[in-house]
Design a binder for these strands. Sequence first.
DNA 1: TCAAAATGTCTATTGATATAGACAACCATA
DNA 2: TATGGTTGTCTATATCAATAGACATTTTGA
Lengths: 245, 245
Amino acid sequence: MAGLKQVQRQTGVALWRQIADRIREAIGNGAYDETGMVPPETVLALQFGVNRHTVRSALAALAQEGIVRAVQGRGTLIERKERLNFPITRRTRFTAGIGDQAREMRGLLLDEAQEEASADVARWLGLKQGEQVIRLETLRHADRRPVSKATSWFPAERFAGIGQAYRKHESITKAFAELGLSDYVRATTEVTAAHAGTADLADLELTPGAILLIAKAMNTDLEGVPVQYSISRFAADRVQFTIEN
Amino acid sequence: MAGLKQVQRQTGVALWRQIADRIREAIGNGAYDETGMVPPETVLALQFGVNRHTVRSALAALAQEGIVRAVQGRGTLIERKERLNFPITRRTRFTAGIGDQAREMRGLLLDEAQEEASADVARWLGLKQGEQVIRLETLRHADRRPVSKATSWFPAERFAGIGQAYRKHESITKAFAELGLSDYVRATTEVTAAHAGTADLADLELTPGAILLIAKAMNTDLEGVPVQYSISRFAADRVQFTIEN
DNA sequence: TCAAAATGTCTATTGATATAGACAACCATA
DNA sequence: TATGGTTGTCTATATCAATAGACATTTTGA
């Protein structure tokens, strides 16, 4: 785990961004926990094999994100350091799963629409293509930090009014309960990773080049009938998934 | 899903690289399956809101990766298009899991060492810190394309010689069998995502800025005794994980 | 055979990225 | 209070990234 010269030139990714990403990761891994500070700029410059100014650009970007704060004469202090654990099980629920790791959970409804099911959505929900579905765009916060953005589809007939219910309870589980579905289970989850698009970048307060963990999930009621299909995008440097078998 | 102007300026990531990443992703999602070709450079330039030369830089990078091939007068043909599905279940096995999606599977042993268990490794394997463990560095290919690189630890006493066994069978499952462990199960898996470091970049034949899906996994024997702890790094644009509950 | 459509090549210009060096300003502590 | 270690600011220079325009070359199909 030597971390020397882990940056490459002429790749289309600026050195300062590569270095910013590595430092952010190192902070998340607790590499600088003893001091609570990032190593001095001159040391980092030596480690990465770049000029001190390049390191300063990287640190400036991290300061912009609110992750570090530079204090003249002292050093660069670590302001924030977190990685939420998100368990994926048969009983996966966003609010309950994260809830005990954060003081305050919020769920914001960004958009709501009724539309015809695309081929993909229809397949996951066990509907015919073109049948009516309700789509919700939701943004979930933990302690005022955006954690994930999700697009969810529900069979329109069975879950009419789920948008209002979500806006009221800020939770899918509670919205389901209000509509008479007291329990449901996670059937399948597909996990991929990708770079964030502009819309997600803005809502999740990320910087370009940031990574998303993407979970495509399908929930069913206790009879195995699909009730929700969702595509959730998580800020990869803020969460990890745990799968217990 | 309009893909307009999904690139940003002055972010430390060159436009041509952002565009290359998006086109690679679109190819992986089957967006251009009808024609088997990428749209013309002028069309892409218009879509992304950049100059044609910038698009050409992006396509040149993809050609370098062997994903597309430009033919003067005709267009830019898609050469390769793949995303392996990797199921994560109680019976997760790399070779068997990927095996039916590729013709040829290889497992290369890059490095082998006996060492003292770190705090992290000891915790996962249920050992005391400092107890002897065997570490294997493996690189796995599907149809001659590198798919993942893994670091695995095993209790040294119980699995002496697992390196040799792996080199012979190119499979952890078969190596276990040779050492008298006929069956094992996946206990837990943790999934994260991060940018690739230089060593992984080289071995996985990735370009800098590329994303890794990282799975930290613990396997036990049928009595629940830990037999393996591994950290696998997958090229995110070549695989997806599926969790069936 | 010709024209349209596509990629290939060249020149020129502008702004972002990275290096280099020097020095100022500030903090902690001996 | 003096000193060493740290961040902040400035100037200068070279290379990479992106735009712009013009034209050549190749393929396809009318």
